[in-house]
Design a protein around this nucleic acid. Sequence first.
DNA 1: TCAAAAGTGTTAGATTTACACCCATGA
DNA 2: TCATGGGTGTAAATCTAACACTTTTGA
Lengths: 238, 238
Amino acid sequence: MTEVNCRSTLNVQRSTYYREHDKVWLSVDVIIFGFDQGKLKVLIGRRQMDPGRGDWSLYGGFVAPNEGINECAARTLQELTGLKNLFMRQVGAFGAPDRDPGERVVSIAYYALINVHDYDERLRQEHGLEWVDINQLPPLYSDHNEMVRQAWRRMQLKMRTEPIGFRLLPNLFTLTQLQRLYEAVSGSEIDKRNFRKRIKEMDFIEKTEFIDKLSSKRGAALYRFNDSVYKEDPTFKL
Amino acid sequence: MTEVNCRSTLNVQRSTYYREHDKVWLSVDVIIFGFDQGKLKVLIGRRQMDPGRGDWSLYGGFVAPNEGINECAARTLQELTGLKNLFMRQVGAFGAPDRDPGERVVSIAYYALINVHDYDERLRQEHGLEWVDINQLPPLYSDHNEMVRQAWRRMQLKMRTEPIGFRLLPNLFTLTQLQRLYEAVSGSEIDKRNFRKRIKEMDFIEKTEFIDKLSSKRGAALYRFNDSVYKEDPTFKL
DNA sequence: TCAAAAGTGTTAGATTTACACCCATGA
DNA sequence: TCATGGGTGTAAATCTAACACTTTTGA
């Protein structure tokens, strides 16, 4: 006579096969990367709920009963940034039994890349979020520091073989900006001439007619990533 | 007077913070890789429960309320193989809303490596499992084919930079066996001389005094992987 | 006029790839 | 004696890494 775990109205019909098993709470947490002032940054905020209210934390949300986990992550991300079609990838599931101090919650981490200037400053403040240098992160709630570490690692690897870095830059960027980005992500210095040599081999990184006069007196050529040229020959290696 | 976090038997106590959210079933599925007859194989069986009873499927299990997901995967793996301390890594979470035809179940995929000869044949038959060539897999239950695909990809990458391949071989192995293994995993042929040259540079792959006379008339030297030598200088690249 | 960032090629060294023949043995 | 798999080295090509000076211009 045990009525187990049959939450909510909606899936009563379906709840026949796995009745004997317990359910768990499932959440997603999103590591949002940005690039600003030559630093790789992560968007974090003060946790708004118990337990851990007030702690620095990643932004997350619970997976709804009939929602795919990727959809949940995309929704969470949009809730937070107002932006769609962001580059997003799963990092993995985190499920140590005591990872959340309040309850048993398994969480799936995702990372996403955004151009910090696309992000509405008002929205950021409303959510109480801050861009924090990934090398200066405070202790975060639960296992979120570990999530960031793994997400960073994943992103590093991805960035060597796919042209995703552009997602962190404005549409038009200088080669120095691009180089600084790669340095910040990889955590090591890159030789300017070798870097530019490799860039020149990629036709989908196009020099435009525009000049950036802000970052130097002489002015630097502005480049753009051309996705349709990339798709013709999608090879990338940096 | 709230006594929280009293993880006891039934965790009624803990269920205070996230009450308003729904839970989901969470399972793990394990891709067990083996190497036999020059082929990379996966251990699959006929599904023993509804829905999908009788379909080819990976082996899996539900995550228990107070069990970490890694522990769950290790337990599932041991249940199945009787073996402990297998090499095992998470592939990722699979959570399309309709991935399981019966219910909403999110599953976390893991892969593991075993030496097929360590695996008790009787146990295999009791579970109704078969070693199937990864290139000849039948359609599997739910999204299990995709899980295998991703696990394979993961393993390929791991195998280039960590000496995990030995987990798929007997303690003593010939260089040809090792080469065939790398060929099967990477899916491409390798030049014999170049391969052996690289092996010779790794001191932790030791030639033993033993000779294998089964696979050739002349006999081939048997090698072993020496983990403590590896740990002194843990670099690996193949 | 000078400080600051942009831009530009060459060379040595390291790594990777391609390639062919002799050996030992059991059938 | 021959068929089978074991075992070995070299050279060309490619890739990687190191390195320094000239240009432009706003302050």
